[in-house]
Design a protein around this nucleic acid. Structure first.
Lengths: 234, 234
DNA sequence: GAAATTCTTTGCGCAGGGGCAAATTCGCCA
DNA sequence: TGGCGAATTTGCCCCTGCGCAAAGAATTTC
């Protein structure tokens, strides 16, 4: 067990409303681990032996279809839970999780999950809230996919990324981990070609700035207009 | 309060593991209500005053986008919970629910929800399982929308409907409530025109049998081939 | 029973966006 | 520093599936 600063952890939403001593007991049972970039945190269909709290880095959660296509379910940011299969009533992980950059996480054996939920009601309630809000997110994505054009969806995806992992630079807001056109395509249900074309077009309009495995959003407000389908159609 | 047969209710998954006396206390606090066809059960953005258990009928849950498009989130069948906004940490309903046929439901005031979850742990656990499985369903739909063609998605939708609300007839399996091409389109992110064309084509192949607000699946297995993209592409 | 509504079908046109190939650029590693 | 592999761009083609309009059934209403 490494030397983790509890003050960094106690402020997290997952632990809200938890007594300090309870927090200690929970965190005390975790092991901390480091995951190198491009290494899996857990894998689809594997037995869900652990659940995790990401402390640092970014994790890409991807579902693979039987025929080999991949769909990115979400990106995990620091402070978020992942691999909580047991909170969904599953014994296996529903997706692959890959470290997008070098990461640090806490891990608990899954068998502790029911005890935590029972012994520390606010922890239980908090994690169920997580599941609830992910359900709402998922519904939003269904609606986006069902009603929006590719251009809008890609714009939405960029804005989401920037809000959740944006870092200010002098050029604009940079997505703070390596991300390929293919990755963006997997988030939006399109192809890397179409994403590339869109980014090129937006770069011409000075809305974004591209780069290898890199996107910087220059004009978020304009992008929002596109995302909402309110952009002037040239 | 009407005269409801508790034996019909005690077998439901939501109440699994619940002592008979606890079940009585829960059901005793419900009011039962009848909802006429095409009447709302609850409406998007309304304060979530109640949550419901559908006893009979079918309810269509639809989300409306700001620009007026509608996406069907799911169909509720007898025995299922609906309007459980509070289990998602919401104070308002996230969608519109319309009775697809005349329905009977139980309703509890939402403020009882936390008490139920606390006082009857298996009820709490069961409902969280519901949320968990709906999250998984939602992810499946995201994947379908992101990776499958319209033809596959419509085939999937029909099979889903038939599994959840199919009634055997001499012609095949009939979807047991009125459903329009438009409704199917809203489930699959396409247009009523495309759905109509697909159904016409499938009718020519004797896979389904259409009708006004009616669909009968004649050859589920063939339809499954289409749904999985394994149909011979003529 | 006639009219009005609602749902469905189908033709026609076309654009959004996927697929593929080839060229190019970038970053890394030896 | 030169070369290799991965990521990206772009051109070209074409097909899926949407939009619209108009016509045709099936129901409901008066």
């Amino acid at each position: 067990m490494g030397s983790l600063d509890p003050s960094l952890i106690s402020g997290l939403p997952v632990f809200e409303g938890l007594a300090a001593t309870d927090l200690d007991r929970i965190v005390g049972q975790a092991r901390s681990l480091r995951i190198a970039r491009d290494q899996p945190v857990f894998e689809q269909e594997q037995e869900a032996h652990s659940f995790f709290l990401l402390l640092d880095g970014h994790v890409r959660v991807v579902k693979s279809t039987p025929d080999g296509q991949e769909v990115t379910v979400r990106y995990i940011s620091p402070g978020e839970l992942m691999g909580i299969a047991h909170a969904l009533g599953r014994a296996t992980y529903p997706a692959n999780a890959m470290a997008a950059v070098d990461c640090v996480a806490l891990a608990w054996p899954s068998r502790l999950w029911p005890h935590f939920a029972a012994d520390y009601p606010s922890f239980g309630a908090n994690t169920y809230k997580v599941v609830g809000s992910r359900l709402q997110e998922a519904h939003s994505r269904v609606i986006e996919l069902a009603t929006e054009q590719v251009e809008q969806r890609v714009a939405h995806a960029l804005l989401k990324l920037v809000n959740q992992a944006g870092r200010k630079t002098e050029e604009g807001i940079l997505i703070d981990f390596p991300i390929t056109r293919q990755n963006i395509a997997e988030m939006t249900g399109t192809t890397l070609f179409t994403v590339s074309r869109l980014l090129s077009a937006w770069e011409d309009l000075n809305l974004v700035k591209g780069g290898r495995q890199k996107v910087t959003v220059v004009a978020p407000h304009q992008l929002l207009l596109i995302a909402e389908g309110r952009a002037r159609k040239s």
